[in-house]
Design a protein around this nucleic acid. Sequence first.
DNA 1: CTAGAATTTCAGTAAATACTGAAACTTCAG
DNA 2: CTGAAGTTTCAGTATTTACTGAAATTCTAG
Lengths: 178, 178
Amino acid sequence: MQLSDDSQAFVMHCGEMGSRWGFNRTVGQICALLVITEEPLTAEQIAKALSVSRGNVSMGLKELQSWRLIQLRHKPGDRKDYYTASGSIWDMGQTIFEERRKRELDPTLSLLRSQLLAADGEKKYSLQRLQEIHDLLELISQWSHALGGMQPKTLQSLMKLGGGVSKIFDLKGKLKSV
Amino acid sequence: MQLSDDSQAFVMHCGEMGSRWGFNRTVGQICALLVITEEPLTAEQIAKALSVSRGNVSMGLKELQSWRLIQLRHKPGDRKDYYTASGSIWDMGQTIFEERRKRELDPTLSLLRSQLLAADGEKKYSLQRLQEIHDLLELISQWSHALGGMQPKTLQSLMKLGGGVSKIFDLKGKLKSV
DNA sequence: CTAGAATTTCAGTAAATACTGAAACTTCAG
DNA sequence: CTGAAGTTTCAGTATTTACTGAAATTCTAG
């Protein structure tokens, strides 16, 4: 596990960004390391490469598994656990998207739903605002579901439209009939 | 500033979710409070309502301004600063989306670009992966730009398609000519 | 200018979070 | 079984992040 300067820099960067992405430094580093490394790695190798404790790596791997971002592998005649990034970058992106929806959107959505249901007609302004927030989150959530269900290939093509999204939308107006 | 139980619960919830959304508890609470309150509030009132120190509120307001989520207001003949949520929920959602792009995507994108430019042809596997990550982030970034540039109205209609996104994409295939 | 009302800053402290390393646990070959 | 190789757990500690409150600063009416 001798990392090139660039790889080193990339892994460290992901560590620093870790917190913005919702996990901690070590988790970010482990994930980056597994993504840019072709061969599956043992916890031991990871700890060595990142200069962190074996226990810390164990916890990090557990968390990455809860995000469904890494996979356990075994080699015949070797009882060590090997880990590797799960699937393509696209798969991983999709997974992160979904997991973030679950963690960042769903809890709030569920609180809003219950408050709106129990609403007593008082407090017009705040209720209306809660409703708006609810509607927005609900829509984002639906989108997120839809995107998560797509094949990476389809998603990729859709994404390639990039700035053209709005153009498509314009088209749609002209095509209600289809 | 007497909050109803529900409002109280909502504000506290946003505080707890705060960290997942990239800021701290107090910032989450202040933002929630301003969103559900129609009248602009002073820092004093906010501190009272949330039972936190005046200084903490000042820092929180500063951060929310850096996110462009709140606006300063003044009342004639009153030199206190009043704060209010900036624009509709939709505007705010868009703003959060953009700011998160800047903070969560752009730094990585910029590192990747420089590493890919300086690439020396060695390390085939990791380079390819970096390229894939770059492409994915680039596309998300473009989308994010496109969405950020849309009128809330347009965006709203687009979002309402929800699960129908893929249908649009199917349409597009049939419409290359347009 | 000046004074007082308001806001911001920031050193010190509190709270939350992450990390280590050793002990407990698991697994399996012999 | 036994014990060695491997993994997980977790109490204690270190680090980071958030918060307080008092002092410094800004602002403006008079």
